[in-house]
Design a protein around this nucleic acid. Structure first.
Lengths: 156, 156
DNA sequence: TCAAATCAGGACCGCAATCGTCCTGTTTCG
DNA sequence: CGAAACAGGACGATTGCGGTCCTGATTTGA
């Protein structure tokens, strides 16, 4: 229950790595090497984070991604939102598709939103800095279910 | 993101319906008729709720299920836990399977747990009574994606 | 001006977990 | 003893997600 998506995990890993040298411009492949995650996935994650406004991208030969905001300014809510869409407990709440046919007369809806707010608040209270604080030198490679086969390039 | 499972939705629907007559003994098929949900699914939900200790079951000819606890005593956390397992944000936290190979040296882990607690607290604060309060007479049939075909028996 | 590097965006496929159903016991009452 | 109802688990379909790749746009440097 409640498992946040793999993408969100990757986002935290990538951002944590970037937080170590804020402002530095790193390419997607470089990032993949540093984190040990597969390149395409890292690239995708970086793109999502860019679209979410969490990092800045620079095209061209000497391009790359950079963390422009301070780690204390980046909340977990933002990370999750950028990678998985808005934080919402129930399909009922967003009402995006045809999820809830009788949405208008569903009285539970309002109550769920209250819970949603509380959850969102909890996630807002945690920043990237909080998640990064203790892992300065530790190897960052959690959250990979069973893909830990071919040993990571280990910074090659 | 965060979408809680369909089962949890069903659980709330069923429990809300039961909360209207606490102590009354209703069978699974009866419950299905009242809620408009398919019988097998309702039966499954009832079983899970029973196992979770949220309702009591009585076998035999005149058997059925009954809500023994007061609606104010039933928290959302309990409902979710009964139907979907423990509330945990990350695969990292539970550490049940081989999800996290480097769990022991993953420094992010502790921080996620903090978030987990906050989320759990938010869900603990909402009871079944809160979700039931306003829906005394409204038809309860949200959360059904596209299965709203054959109009519900409407209490037959 | 041209070529290389790098990001942007989307399409696509495969897997996995979930959802929903059903079947076979077990218990209780008439 | 038979019917009613719950208990528990097995099983198949489906949806969403995770992961990869391809094509285009943009910038830099020779």
């Amino acid at each position: 229950m409640f498992k946040l998506s793999r993408m969100a995990d990757y986002g935290v890993v990538v951002l944590s790595r970037m937080a170590r040298q804020p402002g530095e411009l790193v390419t997607a492949v470089e990032m993949a090497q540093r984190t040990g995650l597969p390149q395409p996935t890292v690239a995708k994650t970086l793109k999502l984070l860019t679209r979410g406004g969490l990092i800045a991208s620079h095209r061209g030969v000497q391009g790359g991604y950079s963390l422009e905001r301070a780690p204390e300014q980046v909340t977990v809510t933002e990370i999750i939102t950028a990678l998985d869409g808005p934080v919402a407990l129930t399909a009922c709440v967003e009402g995006s598709d045809d999820n809830c046919a009788v949405e208008s007369l569903c009285p539970i809806r309002g109550h769920w939103e209250r819970v949603n707010e509380a959850v969102k608040g909890a996630l807002d209270a945690v920043t990237l800095a909080d998640l990064t604080s203790a892992q300065e030198d530790a190897a960052i490679n959690f959250g990979r279910p069973r893909a830990a086969k071919a040993a990571a390039p280990a910074d090659a």
